[in-house]
Design a protein around this nucleic acid. Sequence first.
DNA 1: ACGAGAACCTGTTTGC
DNA 2: TGCAAACAGGTTCTCG
Length: 277
Amino acid sequence: MPELPEVETVRRGLDPVLRGHVLALVEQRRPNLRIPFPDGFVDRITGRTVTALRRRAKYLLFDLDDGQVLICHLGMSGRMTIQPRGSNQPADRHDHVVFTTDDGMQVVYNDHRRFGLMTLTTSRQEADHPLLAKLAPDPLEDAFTPAHLSGRLAGKATPIKSALLDQRVVGGVGNIYACEALNRAGISPRRLAGSVAGKRCERLVPAVIDVLREAIAAGGSSLRDHRQANGELGYFQHNFRVYDREDSPCPTRGCEGHIGRIVQANRSTYFCSRCQR
DNA sequence: ACGAGAACCTGTTTGC
DNA sequence: TGCAAACAGGTTCTCG
């Protein structure tokens, strides 16, 4: 579910509730998500103050006042939503973690597929943490340029669509935004990654940046599971050009093609074979 | 070393 | 109508 725009939307929603607040109560309701919770998870973070909320690629990072960093990933179906303590929200069987702050707000982590994770590191060890060490820089940072991207794609024999999903190539792009960016850039998802350079790469970089920025502004895309932290849906799905639009007319100006669907690396790819080359 | 495919888990939609 | 298969926003492991 959550790609960069959805995670960023959640981060922005959680920030006012968590930053500067104490995690007064932490409830962990199962021993593991995709990976086990670390030993002593609840005790290690209870009573700590959240000093900052950051995002790296699709990871949410909570900085704590003792130097620990709480690493969260939402997987395919994870949500982080806010509710007041004592609200009448019925507990869901997939509410796996509940954080209650010193002023009585609750952040509920719900994830029915449990592909998400939570673990701990420290600010000193963060750069070397196995989950984070190989992540490519964020595509919304200034360092994401055509020269940078073509360097990461050079020599790759995998299709460009699959390469964009590789978090060592671009940090934060997932299946929806890879398809959308390639359509905007007029590049075939089947083209070998190593051949995306020069003019094509100069089109692809702004296409990735623009689609991510527009999606953040829309609160992300809600297909099934995504909710903003306040519980509202995102609405960027209404602006999809190709994703989940098989047989629709291609929206590219002057193109009379139709959207097709293929499978690459076990993931659906949507694209227009007429204007994407 | 690299790339393809399966696996992880649950829920919903689709097709026979 | 009912049941089984296919599919879903991600990541990681195994195998060739």
